[in-house]
Amino acid sequence: MHARAAAATTTALLGAAVVVLPAPTAHAAPDTDRTQVIAHRGASAYAPENTLAAIDKADDLGFRWVENDVQRTKDGELVVIHDDSLTRTTDVEEVFPGRAPWKVKDFTAAEIARLDAGSWFSPRFAGARVPTLTQYMNRVSRNHQKLVLEIKNPALYPGIERETLKVLSNEGWLGPAHVRSKLVVQSFSADSIRAVHALRPDIKTGFLGTPPVAELPAYAQFADQINSSHTTISLGYVTAIHALEGPHGKPLEISTWTVDTAADARRVEGFGVDGVITNKPDVVREALNER
Score class of each variant (00 low, 15 high):
98 G>F: 00
111 E>P: 14
144 H>C: 02
74 K>R: 15
93 E>V: 15
106 D>A: 10
149 L>C: 14
83 D>Y: 09
89 T>V: 14
146 K>S: 15
102 W>N: 03
151 I>E: 07
92 V>I: 09
153 N>Q: 08
99 R>I: 07
154 P>N: 07
82 H>Q: 11
85 S>N: 02
112 I>T: 07
107 F>E: 06
128 A>G: 02
74 K>N: 05
84 D>S: 03
121 F>Y: 14
159 G>Y: 03
75 D>P: 05
142 R>T: 13
144 H>R: 15
149 L>H: 12
121 F>N: 09
91 D>A: 09
94 E>I: 10
130 V>S: 09
158 P>S: 09
160 I>D: 07
95 V>N: 09
168 L>A: 11
76 G>Y: 06
100 A>F: 01
92 V>N: 08
134 T>S: 14
164 T>C: 11
132 T>W: 06
166 K>L: 14
76 G>C: 08
148 V>T: 12
114 R>D: 13
123 P>I: 03
150 E>V: 06
137 M>N: 10
106 D>R: 01
161 E>S: 05
142 R>L: 08
153 N>F: 12
171 E>Q: 15
127 G>N: 02
127 G>A: 04
120 W>I: 07
119 S>I: 07
97 P>H: 09
106 D>N: 11
171 E>Y: 07
120 W>H: 15
106 D>Y: 02
126 A>H: 11
90 T>S: 08
73 T>E: 05
141 S>V: 01
141 S>Y: 00
135 Q>V: 03
153 N>K: 12
81 I>Q: 03
143 N>M: 05
83 D>H: 04
155 A>H: 02
159 G>E: 04
152 K>I: 04
157 Y>K: 02
76 G>W: 06
151 I>N: 11
95 V>G: 11
163 E>L: 11
79 V>S: 04
116 D>R: 04
91 D>N: 15
175 G>K: 13
125 F>R: 08
150 E>D: 11
125 F>C: 08
116 D>C: 03
74 K>W: 01
149 L>N: 15
135 Q>N: 08
97 P>M: 10
112 I>N: 10
98 G>Y: 00
75 D>F: 09
154 P>R: 06
98 G>K: 08
106 D>E: 10
129 R>W: 08
166 K>G: 00
170 N>I: 07
148 V>D: 15
148 V>W: 10
79 V>W: 06
162 R>C: 01
139 R>W: 04
120 W>K: 13
151 I>R: 07
103 K>L: 15
101 P>S: 00
